[in-house]
Design a protein around this nucleic acid. Structure first.
Lengths: 143, 143
DNA sequence: AATGCTTATGAGAACCATTCACAACTGTAA
DNA sequence: TTACAGTTGTGAATGGTTCTCATAAGCATT
């Protein structure tokens, strides 16, 4: 009845081990992130976190997201238009389709594309550190 | 001896035809853009334009870049870190490699990747309006 | 449970790239 | 040359994000 789920408890333990303090505000944000199956921005996360723990400021949301990002717990995306959006890191890497009409975000994954990217970089004397692939799309009519 | 090169003269004519006034400031910016073989940001373009025509404000640089963007004359890129960077639209579409150490930008083009993108989108019921592919890379050691 | 060291927090100011408002100016076509 | 609509410079405004600083609170140790 403590308020932390299994999922966030694991996260907490990992953070504590990394010398990062597990505060009320961070627990709230971790919970919100674990529950999110979309790609919310900082203001949205702030709203959701305050519903659980009113004493969370927007500054802390940003600060915590930065910490979690450098710990590899969340990924930050800067899609076109508007601020950064976040998601918890999950198993496999993926890229995004953005519905330009609805703003919806769909995830996809293509080994072939990843492979081609590496090839291209290698041919030019580079190695890929990370990449960003976003498909801004519209629903096909009469599919 | 007017100051406009062949390249910018063509651009000017096209703009005039589109009902867009060709001002001193815009001529300066068009010249600067035509000469640029890199991917400068607005402040850099402002500096270069002022060297040619001192009466160019930063606001006008931004406004003109927006006009030129919607005319399809320039492309705006929002790479990680820092503001938007611009380049004149040239023949073929291309994507970018960003050297994470030097900040250098290298262009590349891959029909295969474009094709795969279309396929992926189609399978999910979408069609690609535009995309963004950026490879953040580091030079390979001992290649 | 109390201590002490150190990190985290809230509030609001500061920042930075970009856009806006507005009065003065200037292409452009007639 | 005129006249009108588009364009400009200035400086203020905006919006997302980070910073400052005094206060609060983790957490390892007693």
């Amino acid at each position: 009845m403590g308020g932390e789920s299994d999922r966030t408890e694991k996260m907490s333990a990992a953070l504590r081990k990394a010398g990062i303090r597990v505060t009320r505000q961070r627990i709230a944000l971790l919970g919100v992130l674990a529950d999110a199956d979309d790609h919310p921005d900082a203001v949205e996360l702030h709203d959701r976190a305050r519903a659980v723990e009113p004493s969370v400021s927007l500054a802390t949301v940003y600060r915590t997201l930065s910490v979690l990002e450098s710990e590899g717990v969340v990924h930050r995306h800067s899609f076109e238009g508007g601020g950064a959006r976040f998601e918890t890191t999950h198993e496999e890497h993926h890229d995004h389709i953005l519905d330009v009409d609805s703003g919806e975000v769909i995830e996809f994954q293509s080994d072939k594309i990843e492979q081609l990217q590496d090839e291209i970089a290698r041919e030019l004397g580079y190695e890929v550190v990370h990449h960003r692939l976003e498909l801004y799309c519209r629903k096909r009519k009469g599919s």
